[in-house]
Amino acid sequence: MASEPRSVTPGRLEPMLPVLLPVVKRRRETGDTVTLALDPGPEGFGFAPGQFNMLTVLGLGEVPISISGDPGDRSRLVHTIRAVGPVTRALCRLTPGATVGVRGPYGTPWPVAGQTGRDILIIAGGLGLAPLRPALCQVLARRREFGAVEVIYGARRPEDLLYREELSRWRGRFDVRVHVTVDAAGADWRGPVGVVTTLIPHARFDPPYTSAFICGPGVMMRFTVGDLLARGVPEERIFVSLERNMQCGLGLCGHCQLGPLFVCKDGPVFSYARVKEWLTLREI
């Protein structure tokens, strides 16, 4: 009978055990949103676009945060975090040198690899661009495999846009078109104003041969999916990333259920065909 606390090599002994990683870089994105880069150590951190980690501020709590970095770069673990609760507020205050507990990666990825030869629509609302950024990185890294690549991104105001440097870099490329809209703007904004769906008619894609990756607030995703279906994009080629209360990431704690699905392990990325019957029910 061992009653000494056991020192641990973080790993598979206890799936609820985080590894501790240092913050190496912090960038303020918007008034309430920060991007943190963590150093995963010499082995690096591999993940697929769309997956998430459980991030711990020790003593305060743990939250699910999607991974926002380039899946081709294992040397940095990047998360974009909006301060909405006590843990995310604490995460947003961390500076280089601070320690973050990390468990993951968890969840299903955007199936970029399965879309060869198709047009790609990436549609994001607000913070929804964070989990889509790795998908775009992967699409651009394998650009020749796809037809048209169109990014549609809507934020509330111009100052709420994420990754502004990268947006303009993507806009400078000839092989991807980026459409950005905001809900409201001052007189200095020269871009479109209106909800994300108003930009869909401006994107060039061939609906039956298009795959769409969508992430944003629930209402935005609902109306975007509706418009794409009406245009003839097949429902099994429309992918959405869902959000639920997630406390373990392992499919054990029971909080993230959507009908028979555990969003943490069966999702968060689902084809619309798989979840449509549950998305149309309310309070489910």
């Binding site: 061992a2 009653s3 000494e4 606390p5 056991r6 020192s7 641990v8 973080p10 002994l13 206890e14 609820m16 055990l17 985080p18 501790l20 240092p22 020790l58 003593g59 040198g97 601070a98 320690t99 507990g101």
Partner: peptide
């Protein structure tokens, strides 16, 4: 599930006995 002890700016995590 586990306990953590602060070590400077970092933490050390241990499993319970």
């Amino acid at each position: 599930l586990w306990t953590g002890r602060r070590t400077g700016r970092g933490w050390e995590i241990r499993l319970p006995p």
